[in-house]
Design a protein around this nucleic acid. Sequence first.
DNA 1: GCCAACGTTGGC
DNA 2: GCCAACGTTGGC
Length: 155
Amino acid sequence: MPRHWLMKSEPDEASIEDLCAAGVLPWTGVRNFQARNFMRDDMHPGDDVLFYHSSCAEPGIAGLARIDALPVPDETQFDPASRYHEPRATRDRPLWLQIDVRFVRRTRLLPLAEMRRRPELATMRVLARGNRLSITPVTDDEWLAVLAALAEAPG
DNA sequence: GCCAACGTTGGC
DNA sequence: GCCAACGTTGGC
């Protein structure tokens, strides 16, 4: 039984269009222990992903994706030139993980404001006050409610 | 650019 | 182990 997740990405770095073009992208740059632990402990190939655009003019869900592989050490932590470089990490003792995400389809944009307006989505962790996690779990009910909302006209 | 909210760091 | 300071996230 696949689990469901919401993953935030800044479209300037990796948008749903970029994922569509690439097919599969490694999800690098996660530097939060809770989010890393989701990858390490709970994410499995085949899990569903709500692809969310953050830190942009129109934040919201922009498409669907799927976890494509098991997590592996995040390559950017070893790269001194990367903004995600992690001096504490070594090849023997990596600190951060990346996971491959496969494009499924684009959707209409489900804006954050509309998500907040919909009572059936009120439990979503991404909407919780002060949430800053870039990866959050999505329940079966929430997943179905988002798909239903995406199928409706904007509003 | 502002700022609330939060996670992480590091001194003690 | 506490907690203040700091840095980051991310919507607005």
